[in-house]
Design a protein around this nucleic acid. Sequence first.
RNA 1: GGGCCGGUGGUCCAGCGGUGAAGACGCCGCGCUUACAACGCGGAGGUCGGCGGUUCGACUCCGCCCCGGCCCA
Length: 920
Amino acid sequence: MGAPGDGPPRGRRAGGARTDRLAARGRVSGPTLPPRFEAGPIEARWQAAWAEAGVAHPRDRPGASMFSIVLPPPNVTGVLHLGHMLGDTVSDTVVRAHRMRGDATLWVPGLDHAGLATQVEVRRRLQKQGVRLEELPREEAIHQVELWTKEHEARILEQTRAGGFSLDWDRYRYTLDPGSVRATREAFVRLYHAGLIYRGERMVNWDPRLRTAVSDLEVVHAEEEGELVYVRYPWADGAPGGMEVATVRPETIFGDVAVAVHPGDERYRAAVGRAVRVPLTDRTAPVIADPLVDPAFGAGALKVTPRHDPIDREIGLRHPELAPAVEIFDAGARLTGAGVPPDFHGLDRAAARQRAVERLGEAGLLVRREPHRHSVGRSERSDEVIEPRMSTQWFVRMGPLAAPVVAAVKAGEIRIHPDRWLPTFYRWMDGLQDWCISRQVFWGHPIPVDHCRQCGHLEVTLAPGPRCSQCGSHDLAADPDVLDTWFTSWLWPFAILGWPEPTADLDRYYPTRLLVTGRDIMFFWVARMMMAGYQFTGRPPFSDVYFTGTVRDERGRKMSKHLGNSPDPLDLIRERGADALRFSLVFPTPTDEDGPFGRAALDGGRNFLTKLWNLVRFALPHAGPGDASPPVPELPADAALEHRWILARYRRTAEEVDAAIAAFAPTRAATALHGFLWHDVADRYVEFSKEALSGRLGEPAQRHARATLRFVLERSLRLLHPIVPHVTEELWHALPHPDGLLATAPWPSPTEAPADPEAEVAMEPVLETIRLLRNVRAEEAVPADATPRAWLRAANPEVARVLAAEHGAIVRLAKLSSLALLPPGSDPPPGAGSRVAPFGECFLELPGRVAGPSAALERERERLAQLLTKTQARLADVGFRARAPPEVVAEAESKERELRERIRRIDEHMSGTASPGAAA
RNA sequence: GGGCCGGUGGUCCAGCGGUGAAGACGCCGCGCUUACAACGCGGAGGUCGGCGGUUCGACUCCGCCCCGGCCCA
């Protein structure tokens, strides 16, 4: 990509061969643009210009509204993917529109250190070089992680900048910068002293590979094939038989303290209270009853291992009479400890399971094994099977934090878009487990706690002193763990504005207005930010949350590194430009739905921009001089209909764009502008106006056309700018324009242009006439260069007037030699090809021959006949006449008349063609 | 097992109680007509997943079912 200032001014290139040819004939005049544009130089130039002008710094003027938003800080773990680009495009669209409206607009970028995730990536990288991260000295390990961070940060920043997002880089933040350290510490200390953080031994999700606890959210559950092993626990008193127990984890048998059955299970009524011998050990254990046991599962009896399963733990707690459970695993989930037989020592879970099955078989206690599909939890980061493990960790109490959030969302203080995610949100907030925030890794914020080795007191203060505040001892040890990354991220919306200091930014830009993100982090981040917002600032962190859909590949698959179907946005930008990428991400699939993205989508975006480019290119010679924003054209009453029509269409489009921005729905804005510019302006309005623009229709006509075209294009560029900022900025500058940048030019008010429904209605028969005549040409294979005669018979005088007024445009656009209006009741020309429409009939001369049977007419007749049958059936229904609103009945009646009349006329046309010359 | 979302021409999707069901891509035919072939013009193609119900009227509301996807346990 070229640096700013590369290449000739405005990125002009020598035109293509065609342009040269035309230029040589002197048919192109005035300032020109090349027929295609190169995004690279244009985008680089305007990004530099915006940076230089400080466009993204908020301009706060007296009385201005505020609009602030935070960029979800990407994880430094990886690089940006299309999902980031989608979210950032949605955000930027809304941000730029607000900026143009004159709001004090602020969008703050940042980066997340992604503690555990990053450490895992660095570990993996070092492993390829044969180095174990854990064996490096702490200093060196941190250095390696910082190295990684620098590289990835550079890449992420390059990607983000290439997108042209109007972020205020002067406020760029990092979750490990001094401000984040300060905020994180403050949050921890406050929660601790409020009794909302506690330390305790709990059953946690333990990742034996990374040797750390992880939170519930970091465990990914999936169905996996396993094996259910049925084991007989013999009676301790030597009686024959025993208890048959089904388990997927026979290796934990050394941790068993009981066998449990459901209290209502008749099969085991007599067994409860007896004792069994735990296989492979010399211990015995009681048979107990507990309602947590599912009598339908396996044999209905459960081995109870309180240190290795959450349900067993629950049962253990309810039965204090049981022997204390012993730990049988070390931190790497290898068997260890006094309760484990020597030949199992040091085995990992899988090996131990295998050996346990063997030994049980040898002991004659293995009843049977059967395949069993069940849900297995794996660590999100290492993919290792999670080991439920008793461990001393730090936790945040979620109940008190969640309550105000649920209330706020219910009250509409925070709105979630689309609101179909509300049930999911509520359900999760409801059953929250306390949040385990300590991690046994080194990369992250240290837990701000000192342990007194003398008296055991925990020092939890903002500025810890050298001595224990309880006993005065200097023998303090810093807590060895670090905090979950999200414990910093959840403070983001206010931490980046300076919290806990009472800064001006915090005062002005908090709460933020909008958060755009993927719903995959709804619980990890969004919900927790809400909790932190209310807890620490007493206010919501944002008023609206917008969840984008997932970008999929053309085949509908999720994008992933594994499938190799996740393109680097930077490559796409280099290939087609940031604007093309941005447009294709929001159009045509709604940004809150999962949608496919691929070559076709990207080309579609690029094609639209080329179309826009050429539209302006065409308009350029007509734009005239000037350094002001064009005013609304003043059209006299006798000005051509198409001018009024396109202004009315513009008005509707501008209103739709406004509504779309207010609803955070860039797709709606893109759809409206795409249809308007391509089909209304380019395909219709420009084609209608070419004659007037050329001056052949005289000075006033040319003036009206030029003023209207200039107005419509200039305003459209403003409306389109938030979505595709670079191209629009370039084109806006190519046209006469006021000083400054489009990026900070005022947002147009739709009401500038008059609403004009009459013009819209009047234009319909004109457009329809042209289409039908072209249709006959195509069906009858009239040569492209032939200019036949045509006749129209209007259904009413108003239509006749409009068709007469637009006579010239119809002749030109349908390529006719002449066009005559037939008076009512007059005979149609014999042998002509024809069509029948609601507004009337049209006839096209077929030079040198007579029209044959028309398939199109027959199809039309068939279609109308079906409609008529349906309409008549409706009218024949007494219930319809009795209960439908009168206007609906009247509408059906007039529709019936209209259909009959039209069918009658088609029959005339068809018989007319069958016998040329027959009078109607 | 529980919950949520979706099922509309070949593909992707608008519409969400009175419609002749919109558009984009793809397809067919014609065309370099003084911006654009990355284009223009015309056209074909749909029993709106299935079955019931509510209603004068259902793509639209309700129930059940089938299919696909996601989330939680």
